[in-house]
């Protein structure tokens, strides 16, 4: 089936099988491998991207469902060579170790701050419930999101 999906500002027209998941479209068809697959039950959040501006687990949508829509992946977050403030904040506050959950964490957190610009620590922790990290114990991720919400000076 023919689809036209805009990813990070560029529209890609491709012929895909209906069963192709959006995450595999990104990783296998477009070679945008920053988006990760860490589970098969829609739990871990490693595959989080933005679809029309809101956070989506891209393993839980078919590529054909994204036809005509706009996707932003971790590769598209930095603009004009400038890291997104959330990326800076994860770096500054050691919000990552092995880095595998990180693209999903950053995408989920940026979407969250768009809805809640001044979250409490408890709200940040609650809103990370769809993203699992095994390395960091979450503390520096929470710190990074707090700092990003405060304009970088956590």
């Amino acid at each position: 089936m023919q689809v036209a999906i805009t990813v990070n500002g560029q529209t890609y027209e491709r012929d895909v099988e209906p069963r192709l998941l959006l995450v595999h479209f990104l990783r296998e068809v477009l070679d945008l491998t920053g988006t990760k697959v860490g589970c098969d039950t829609s739990q871990c959040g490693s595959c989080t991207v933005h679809l029309d501006g809101v956070a989506l687990k891209s393993c839980t949508m078919l590529a054909v469902q994204a036809d005509g829509r706009e996707v932003t992946t971790i590769e598209g977050l930095a603009q004009n060579g400038e890291l997104h403030p959330m990326q800076e904040s994860f770096w500054e506050h050691h919000g990552l170790q092995c880095g595998f959950c990180t693209p999903g964490m950053i995408m989920a957190s940026t979407a969250f701050l768009q809805q809640n610009a001044e979250p409490t620590e408890a709200e940040i922790r609650h809103n990370l419930e769809g993203n699992i990290c095994r390395c960091t114990g979450y503390q520096n991720i929470v710190r990074a999101v707090q700092a990003a919400a405060n304009g970088g000076d956590g």
Binding site: A78, Q87, W91, E92, L96
Partner: peptide, 13 residues
């Protein structure tokens, strides 16, 4: 700051 992070936070790793 960690020197491994730029590639990890941008999806380039």
């Amino acid at each position: 700051r960690r020197r491994e992070d730029p590639r990890l936070i941008t999806g380039n790793a």
